[in-house]
């Protein structure tokens, strides 16, 4: 189904430049049922500009089922645990902030370890 096309440098750089800056919150994830590979990652334009609570940072809504929350936190943990060892201090700081938020949400939803 998927055809991979090698990215030329010019187009690659252009595409990267056009891509929104790393958002203050994570990327939203579309529902998994029936979603294709591409639809898992959607543009971040709709992401809140200044998320405040851990739930907002993790984009967890009050009505989200527990299994969706768990899947969401797993995805975010994998992503930001990697970011926590980045050489870029900004990426590292953002990753630490997100990991803190992930842990807080996890404790609220699933209880303390």
């Amino acid at each position: 189904m998927f055809k991979k096309i090698l990215q030329s440098l010019s187009k690659s750089q252009q595409a990267k430049a056009q891509a929104p800056a790393r958002p203050s919150g994570p990327l939203p994830v579309a529902p998994s049922s029936g979603a294709g590979l591409l639809s898992k990652v959607v543009p971040v334009a709709g992401a809140p500009a200044t998320p405040r609570t851990p739930e907002e940072l993790c984009e967890i809504t009050p009505k989200m089922p527990r299994d969706q929350v768990a899947a969401r936190l797993k995805l975010l943990y994998r992503r930001y645990n990697r970011g926590a060892s980045s050489l870029d201090p900004k990426v590292r700081a953002e990753a630490d902030r997100m990991l803190d938020a992930i842990v807080v949400v996890r404790e609220k939803v699933f209880g303390e370890i």
Binding site: M1, K4, I5, Q7, A19, L38
Partner: peptide, 19 residues
Amino acid sequence: GTLAMVYNARTGEEKLMNS
């Protein structure tokens, strides 16, 4: 992997992805 435009033949979408 490498960065590649991944083309979805069904939807016609293409997106820069980590392949």
